[in-house]
Write a protein that binds this DNA or RNA. Structure first.
Lengths: 347, 347
DNA sequence: GCTGGCTCCTTGATCGTTCCAATCCACCAG
DNA sequence: CTGGTGGATTGGAACGATCAAGGAGCCAGC
C-alpha cells in the first residue's frame, strides 16, 4: 500500500528516459538503439552516430532492472561485511574494499554489501543467490573455518575467495591469497641484517593456519641464519593486551632484542610493554608488525610492518571473477601474492 | 557474444525457482503467491500456509530484477567510496559503513558501493540514477564543498547527507551530522577539570567549517573557564607531520600543558613531538584527539578521543531515507547528534 | 428470491530491455 | 532478368514479477 505512494513523501520522482524515448527521437527501432549501446559494431557508422546523439541529448542509460531481468545477470558482486572490530589495528579491509570497488567498476560491476555475523556464516548468501540479486561473491572471511566456500560450491554459485582453503585441500574454487611466510621471512632477515640474533615471534593460536604460515617465515629465516629459536616463540590471542603480556614474558625469560609479530595489533602490545619498561622501539628493541595498518603508519616513530598487496589482491580477484563469469578464457585456480616490507622507525 | 556464453566458463548456473514454479506446486494463481510474500494479510490462513510451504520447499525468493522492474525500485542505497587515505588515522568510515549496512538490511535495503574520485565529485551519481540502479544515495563527503547535494537536489534524487550543508543555508535536503563543538567542549572541560589552564588547540584550515565547529567547542570552554587562548591555537593541514610541527611551535612559544586536536591524525603528530622531547603523554602533557580511531584505541597508553556516534548517525540516516522513500510520515530536515568522550591514558 | 456488500482469489496488462528470427536492401554473378 | 549473398535493420516474444480490475462464493437484509 504505502510502498506505492512516493508522492506522499514530498518528492516527485522524475522518470528517466527509456529506450522507447530514444527510439522515437532517433527514428530507428528498439533493437538498433540496443545495439548502439551493446554492439556498436553491428551498426553502420552514420546510424550509430545518429543514435548516439539522441542518447546523449536525452541522457539515456539503460534501465538496470530491465536489463538484469532479460540477461539474467545483475552486474553486482556481493561482499559480506562483518561487524567492525574495536580495539584492534585491522582496518585493512578498507584498503581492500576501495580497490575492489575501483577494479570492479572497470570490469562493469558494482559491489553490493550485505550484513553478516559470525554466528551465521552462510546467512545472506543463499537469499541473494536465489533472488539473482548478485552475479558472484567475494568471500573474505575464510579463516573462520570457511563453511561458505563448501556451501557456495555445492550451490554452484560463482565466487572467489580471498584466502586459501587451508582445511579443504580438495576444494576447487578459485582463490587469491597472500604468502604470509614470504612476508615474515624478509622481515626477519631485515632484523638479522641489522645485527639482531635473538628475534622473538609473537603469533596466533596454533589452530590458525594463517598464523602458522606467518610463523614459518620467521622460523626459516632464523634457521637459515643459524640462530636459536627455542623459548623465543609465543602464541596468543590477537589483542593488544595479549601482545603486551607475551612481550613481557619473553623479555623476562629470553631477552630478545627484536620482535616479529603476526599482526600490528600484537606489535602495538609489544610497544606498550616497551613503553612501560622505558625501552625505546628502534633503538633498544626492534619491532615488526604485520598488515601495515594506519596504526603502523602514524605511530610516532613509525612501526615497521609487512604490507599485504591488497590492491593486487583485489585486482586478481576481479580477474578471477571475470573468467568465472565467462568473459574470458580459463580461470586460474589459485593466486599467491607476495607482500612487501614497509620499514619505519621501529626497526 | 561472449557475454552470453556462461557455459564456456566451466560452471553451470542453476536457475532458481520462479514464481511460476511455486504457482504450479501450490495450485494457486500468480497473484496469490505474490500476495503470500508481500501482503500475507490478504490471504486466508490455510491458503497462506499452503503457499508458504511450497515456497519453503522450493526455496523460492522473488527475482530481484523482475520485482525491481515492475515496482520501479531497486531496494539499493548508493554509497560512493573515495580512494583510501594512507598515513592518516581516519578509518572511521569502516565503523559507519558497517552500521549502515546492518540498519539498511533491517529496512529491506542493501548498500551498493560505487567508485568516485575527488576530481569528479558528481561522477557516478548521474549514471546510477538514470539507470534506476539505486533508490537513493547516502552522501558522505560533503566537506569537500559539496556540489553533490546541489546537483542531486536539482535532479530530484532522493538522498541523505552525512554532514550539514555548511555553505548552502538554503538547502532543504535531509541531513545527519555530529556536533563537533559539543565534542571538543567536554573534552576541553575534562582537561580543565584535571587542572590544566594552558590548553592548546590544533585544528584545520580556517576554510574548513567542520574544523571551525570543533574549534568553537574548545574556545567556548576556555572562555567560560576564564582561561586565556591567545597564542594557543594553530591551524594546519590534516597530517601527522603538520600536527607534530604545530605542537613543537606551540610548546616553544606558549608552553601549553595540554592539547586538543581536530583529529586523531593531528593528535598522533603531537604525540610524535612529545616522544622526541621525551615528554610522557598523560603525565607531562595531556592530549585529546578526535574520531576515536583504531589508532587512538591501540596506542600504548591510549589516546583520549572524541568519539562520533557513527552507529547513531547510520541509524538516523536510514530513518531519513525511509521517510524520504515514502514508507513513513514526514521527514525531519536535519538531525544533529552529540559525540562522547573516550577517556584514555593520554589525559 | 434477488440484491448488495464483503472476502478471497484469478486473469489480463505492464515494467524496459535483450534475444531470436525474419525482413529489407543493395549488389553481383549467372 | 533472376537468384543468391551478406550486411543493416526490424518486429514479435520473453525475462519474472506486480498492478489493476474482474469474477466466484458467501451471508445478511428487504
Amino acid at each position: 500500500m504505502s510502498r506505492t505512494e512516493p508522492r506522499a513523501a514530498g518528492f516527485i520522482p522524475v522518470a528517466p528516459p527509456t529506450l522507447a524515448d530514444v527510439v522515437e527521437r532517433a527514428g530507428v527501432s528498439r533493437q538498433t538503439v540496443s545495439n548502439a549501446v551493446n554492439n556498436p559494431d553491428l551498426l553502420r557508422p552514420d546510424t550509430l552516430e545518429r543514435v548516439r546523439e539522441a542518447i546523449d541529448e536525452m541522457g539515456y542509460s539503460p534501465n538496470r532492472a530491465a536489463r538484469n531481468l532479460r540477461t539474467r545477470s545483475s552486474q553486482l558482486i556481493g561482499l559480506r561485511v562483518l561487524p567492525a572490530q574495536e580495539g584492534t589495528a585491522n582496518a585493512m579491509m578498507d584498503r581492500f574494499v576501495h580497490t575492489l570497488v575501483d577494479t570492479s567498476a572497470e570490469a562493469g560491476y558494482h559491489v553490493l554489501l550485505f550484513a553478516g555475523d559470525n554466528d551465521d556464516p552462510v546467512g545472506g548468501y543463499d537469499h541473494l543467490l536465489r533472488a539473482t540479486a548478485v552475479d558472484a561473491f567475494v568471500v573474505t572471511d575464510t579463516y573462520l573455518g570457511n563453511p561458505q566456500a563448501a556451501r557456495l560450491t555445492e550451490q554452484r554459485a560463482p565466487f572467489v575467495a580471498f584466502g586459501r582453503p587451508w582445511d579443504q585441500p580438495q576444494a576447487t574454487h578459485p582463490w587469491v591469497d597472500v604468502d604470509g611466510a614470504a612476508g615474515t621471512r624478509p622481515a626477519t632477515e631485515h632484523l638479522i641484517a641489522k645485527g639482531h640474533t635473538r628475534i622473538a615471534w609473537i603469533g596466533w593460536r596454533k589452530d590458525s593456519p594463517i598464523g602458522e604460515d606467518r610463523r614459518a617465515g620467521w622460523l626459516s629465516a632464523m634457521r637459515d641464519a643459524g640462530h636459536a629459536t627455542t623459548g623465543l616463540a609465543s602464541r596468543v590471542e590477537d589483542t593488544v593486551q595479549s601482545g603486551a603480556e607475551a612481550a613481557a614474558v619473553l623479555l623476562d625469560e629470553s631477552a630478545p632484542t627484536a620482535f616479529v609479530c603476526a599482526s600490528d595489533t600484537l606489535a602495538m602490545g609489544v610497544l606498550h610493554t616497551l613503553w612501560i619498561r622505558q625501552l625505546a622501539p628502534g633503538r633498544d628493541i626492534a619491532v615488526v608488525g604485520f598488515d601495515d595498518s594506519q596504526v603502523a603508519q602514524v605511530f610516532p616513530v613509525g612501526l615497521t610492518s609487512v604490507r599485504q598487496p591488497l590492491e593486487d589482491v583485489a585486482v586478481a580477484i576481479v580477474r578471477a571473477l571475470e573468467t568465472l563469469l565467462g568473459h574470458l578464457p580459463p580461470p586460474a585456480q589459485g593466486v599467491l601474492l607476495t607482500p612487501t616490507l614497509a620499514i619505519r622507525g621501529s626497526s
